[in-house]
Every structure is written in structure tokens, then in C-alpha cells.
Design a protein around this nucleic acid. Structure first.
Lengths: 341, 341
DNA sequence: ACAAATAACCAAACCGTTTTCAATTTTAGA
DNA sequence: TCTAAAATTGAAAACGGTTTGGTTATTTGT
């Protein structure tokens, strides 16, 4: 049913009906009620595409999905969904064909040109992230999930990775660990750098020299967790503790330790970062996993909220949120055993 | 830049330009080339909302995301993305606020009415799935990922869960296992029923009576895998083998077995269904996990493809794909040990 | 060389809303 | 009671494309 037809049914002009439904003030309360009732009864709802054309709003916020198909993604989006379900806004997932840099910039450029989204959420930025510069230049509202050092005004939400990992590492040191390995995330991303900084700082405060042989980085997969942990543990002077970048990495570390007959929490300590997944909980691992913890889902919800604020005119410069991260100690961390050294 | 303006620049009418860009036949090849070149040079691209309004096409296919934030989801979408990146089609993720039944139907109804999507992909259908009936009734093109017994014509793509699990179970039986436990997926979903059927059939063929005490179902989480496996293993007459519904479930089973000092592949055998995740691979588990294997990502790609076919007029009745499932044997399955029986 | 067919292009109508601007009715003020 | 102001309502012009139904060149057939 079209507006024109519907308006005729109600006995009003399209103008008034449109206003009544959009909540404009210049329509009497009685008429509004009548229109609202009729809309429900006759099942009228405005054609989205017409509205979008006229208003210029896309009614959707975009999220670019890399090929990696990261498992964080679903949780983040579920979080966004929680906030957006009440709004008229959709989540538009933009497939990225190729991790090729040139193509990626083109993708963002086309996305902006095509006006399919009102705003974009940028994930895992690098310290000097060209996407941010581009979006700023193109005048597209956007929110960065993570942080970038780039000198361009932008809204962001991030968790305090540095403090989290520093605290986790310090805790391991307090337990007597001196050789601590770190399995970090994708090199290049700011969060990975922050974590490394936190790690190094903790060591430095306690006068421990970081050992490059005990630091690795890569995607958050069980395989890499296993491989790195295993190779570290097979070194002549193995680590007694691990700081792992994700739950998947931690799984790999657990397996590596076990495969060498080491008991976690006694022979080797492990702390991982937990983004809180409903399907894989640190508390239920055996032994339960000590973790720096911050809900990916909550971040998604808040990011959606902030994007909406951005769209209703709030300045990006005012939108900077740094979330603290909990450290939850469980069984996977224990005092360092007498080492061979 | 608008069409009118752009057309003027090129020295043609909007009509011709529009046709040239859309590949209509009644425009000369030289003109088309000229227009295409100018479009790139001047950075013209049609306003999506105008196109959508005029053509009536939304240019997006919808996927309803439940609150569970399932980890399969990201992989499936990544797969869709692979196919859709070449098209003009977007993926619209529709957040579902509430698992409440009434609300869910309302959500689908509103989604259809709002014309935001050209087609919908329905996940994890039940044998008698009202969403399918509703979408059919409303005349919205849709594809079911999974299967339903409902008596309404519809397109679907599914993997052969029944055959897969039957084969897996048979293999365990061939290895001498007689007490086999099954940890299935969400009760109610067709795939879970199919798996149960496959499981029962394998037992039946070999004259084994299924033991309800060894069958459980629930979400695909590590926690449930652990809890069920553990409780089964603590029974007086424990199972010697497990059929697990997912990788996460398998993780739980592994932990349960280990926590009881049982060695997987020797004391207890495990086969799980593997949807092929880049971040958690069966091959890298310790011991490596035997699995029925079918790529979620490939399914996503193919579903996207089939939806596009649906939209270009192919009949839903012709679109039924049942994918065979590989069985890959690794270290987690071995001969049944002499049991106490 | 001329009619008919074909190729290439264009003007204008239309998609279904929102919104500007003007018209009408109601209320308030004197 | 009459006028000015305020409250409601409507007509019509966008929004930016696509597509119908011509119109004008260009071939083709004889």
C-alpha cells in the first residue's frame, strides 16, 4: 500500500499522514492517533527506498568484514544488534574481497560514494591507518573500534590493552615468573602494539630484560598458539608463563603444554585475553583460565550507540572511550616452580 | 555528481548514459566505452537509493541473526561475501531482539513489508518451520540453509547430516565400540533430528540398542560438551566413544576425558562435526580430531549464489542441494579397549 | 534511388516518499 | 464581534535515477 492510497483511506493528505507518522509537531494529537491506528490496521509502512532517497539517509551502518572471518566478528555484531534493534538502522556487512591494500582503499571509497551507509565502523586500526584518513577526507562519519595515532580527528572506542597486559604480566612476575612468553595478535594493529608496550613495561618495572625469543605474533588461531608455545617450550631455557592474545591462542598453548607433559597452573602459567564468548568460556577450561576480560558484545552495543550519537550531530572529538579491562585470576596461573636456572 | 550533470559533461542525454552504464544493448559500443571512461574519470556512480526506488530492488539479501551470536555465523557470512562481492548485493544483518516466537514472526513480517531486502536466508529450520510458511505466504524469495519437512515449496541447501553421522557412528562400531554417546545440537532443529536419525540407524544396523542415558543435546558450547561428556563418563557403564556436534563440543569432550585421566584415541574415541573454521582446526588438535567435515564458508558462498539465481527467476522448486559430508579419520578414533563388560 | 527496417539516441513520465510554501481553520486578544 | 496569531492541513516540488514511447540517423533490400 502506498502513501497516497493510504492517505485517501484515512481521509487526509499524504503530507499530513507523513507528518503524523514521523512525529512532526504540527499535527494534532487526535489526528496522529487516528493515523497511527489506521497504519497498523491497514498495514501501511513507508517504502524504505523512497524515504532513503528523499531524506538522503541510508538507514544502515556499515561494517567491513575481512576475509579472515574472525570469530570476534559475530559477537561484536550481536552486540551492535542489541542496540540497533530499537532503531531504524540496519547493519550492512561489506565483504572485502582481498586483503590487498590498494583494493581495500578502493572498497572504502566506493562504499562512501555509493551512499549505502550513513556511517562506518573501522576495526583493528593501525597506528597510522589510511582508512581513517580517507574516511575523514571523504566526510563520511565513522567510529574506530580500537585506536590509531593518526593525526586526524575521529571518534573511537577501545579497551585499555596496555594496562590490561601490563597488569597481567606484573601479576605473573609477582608470582615469581621471570621468563614470560607473549603470543600477540596481528603485527601492525595498534592493539597488538599496545599489548606489547604493556608487556615490556611490566618487565621493565621489575628489571627484567625482554627476550625476543619469547615473543611472537600472528592471527588468533589455535594452531599458532600451539606452534609458538611448543617452540618456546622446547627452547633450552623455556618460559614458565605465557601471555596469550586470545582464547583460541590459549587453547593452543594449553595443548602445547600438555603435549609436553607440563601441567598448566603448576609447571606453566597462562593468562589470555578473553573477549567473552558464549561458546568458549575461560571459567570452564581445565584448568580454568586466568584472563584479562572485556566483553566484545558490550563493545559492539556501545559502538552502535556512539555511532548513533555521531549521526545525530555529536562531534567525533568528544567521542573517545577507553574501557578498563578486568583481570580475573583462575587456576591457570600459579607460583613459578623452581627453575633450572 | 548527479546523472544529469554527468550526462551533460559527456554530451549525452541521461537516458543514454543510464543505459550505457547498465549495459543495455541499444547503445553503441563506442558510446558505451566513452561513458564508462568518463564515469571513472569524473567519479560518477548512480545514487543507490534512487536506483532502488525506481527498480524496486533492495540490492541486499537479509540474514537474521539470533541473539546467540553463533560462531558459525561469521564463517557463513564470509562465504556469502565471497560470492556477493562481485555483485551489487549487500548482506543485511537483521538483529533479532528476542528469541520469543511471537516476536520472531513479527520481525520477519516487518522485514518483508519494509522491502529492505530482496531475499532472505533462513537458518537452522525446524521440521515444521513457521518462518518458511510465512515467507512463502508473503511472497518473499528465500532460501533455507538446512531442511524443513514443511509442505510449502522452498529452495534449500543442506548437508547430509544423517548420512554423515551414520557413517561416523558406523565407523566407531567397526572399531569395536558398543557404548557410543552422542552430544547433539539444539533440540528441535532439523539438523539435530537428522543427526539423531543417522546415529540411531547406525546402531540399529549393527543391532545395538541406543541408550538414552548417552544422548544429550544443547547449544554448541565447550561448557555443554564438557558437562555432558563428564557426566556420561562418570556413569557406571561409561561410553567408549563420542559423537560430538561441533568443534566446541569436541573441545569440551576432550577436556572431560582428560580430566578423568582418559587418553583420547585410546581410552575414548571422539568424532565431531567440523564446519571448518580457520581459527580452530581439527587437524591441529592433540590428538588430532576425527571429523565429519563440511565447509560452512563454502555453504555460505553457494547459498549466496543460489539466492541470486532465485532472484533472477529460477524456481525455488528446482533449488535443492544436498551436500555430501566427508569423514576424515585422525588420531581421536581408535579401537575400543577391552571394556569391563 | 527509395521504402522499410534497424540502430542510436532523447524527452518526459514515473518510482513513493519528504518538505517547502501556501491555504485554511481554530484560538486568543482587544 | 472582529482581527491577529497560532494551529492544522494540503498542493506541489523535489530526491536521482530508470524506462516507455517516440524521434532522428543509418543500413538494408529491391
Amino acid at each position: 500500500m502506498k502513501l497516497k492510497e493510504f492517505a485517501k483511506q484515512v481521509g487526509l493528505s499524504p503530507t499530513t499522514v507523513s507528518r503524523a507518522l514521523s512525529g512532526y509537531p504540527e499535527v494534532s494529537e487526535t489526528t496522529r492517533a487516528r493515523v497511527a491506528e489506521a497504519a497498523v490496521r491497514l498495514g501501511y509502512s513507508p517504502n524504505v527506498n523512497a524515504v532513503r532517497l528523499k531524506t538522503g539517509r541510508a538507514g544502515a551502518i556499515g561494517v567491513v568484514m575481512g576475509r579472515a572471518g574472525e570469530f570476534h566478528f559475530a559477537e561484536f555484531m550481536a552486540g551492535m544488534a542489541e542496540r540497533l534493534v530499537a532503531e531504524e538502522a540496519d547493519i550492512l556487512v561489506i565483504p572485502m574481497a582481498d586483503p590487498n591494500h590498494e583494493d581495500e582503499m578502493q572498497l572504502y571509497r566506493r562504499l562512501v560514494e555509493s551512499r549505502r551507509v550513513d556511517a562506518i565502523i573501522v576495526h583493528s586500526p593501525k597506528p597510522n591507518d589510511e582508512r581513517i584518513a580517507l574516511l575523514h577526507e571523504l566526510g563520511m562519519p565513522f567510529l574506530v573500534h580500537g585506536r590509531s595515532a593518526i593525526d586526524v580527528p575521529h571518534a573511537w572506542l577501545d579497551i585499555d590493552n596496555e594496562a590490561a597486559i601490563q597488569r597481567a604480566t606484573s601479576h605473573l612476575i609477582d608470582l615469581g615468573h621471570r621468563r614470560i612468553a607473549m603470543i600477540n595478535g596481528r603485527p601492525g594493529a595498534t592493539y597488538a602494539l599496545h599489548r606489547e608496550t604493556g608487556f615490556r613495561r611490566a618487565l621493565q618495572i621489575h628489571g627484567i630484560e625482554p627476550d625476543p625469543q619469547l615473543m611472537a605474533s600472528g592471527n588468533f588461531t589455535d594452531e599458532l598458539g600451539f606452534r609458538f608455545a611448543r617452540s618456546f617450550l622446547e627452547q633450552p631455557n623455556p618460559p614458565t608463563a605465557f601471555v596469550a592474545g586470545s582464547m583460541m591462542t590459549a587453547l593452543g598453548v594449553y595443548r602445547a603444554a600438555r603435549s609436553l607433559g607440563l601441567q598448566i597452573g603448576r609447571d606453566v602459567s597462562v593468562i589470555a585475553h578473553d573477549d567473552v564468548f558464549p561458546y568458549l568460556t575461560a571459567d570452564n577450561m581445565v584448568p580454568s583460565l586466568s584472563a584479562t576480560r572485556s566483553s566484545m558484545r558490550a563493545a559492539g552495543t556501545r559502538c552502535a550507540d556512539l555511532v548513533l550519537q555521531l549521526l545525530s550531530g555529536r562531534s567525533p572529538l568528544e567521542i573517545h572511550e577507553l574501557w578498563p579491562v578486568e583481570l580475573i585470576l583462575r587456576e591457570s596461573t600459579g607460583p613459578a616452580r623452581q627453575s633450572t636456572s
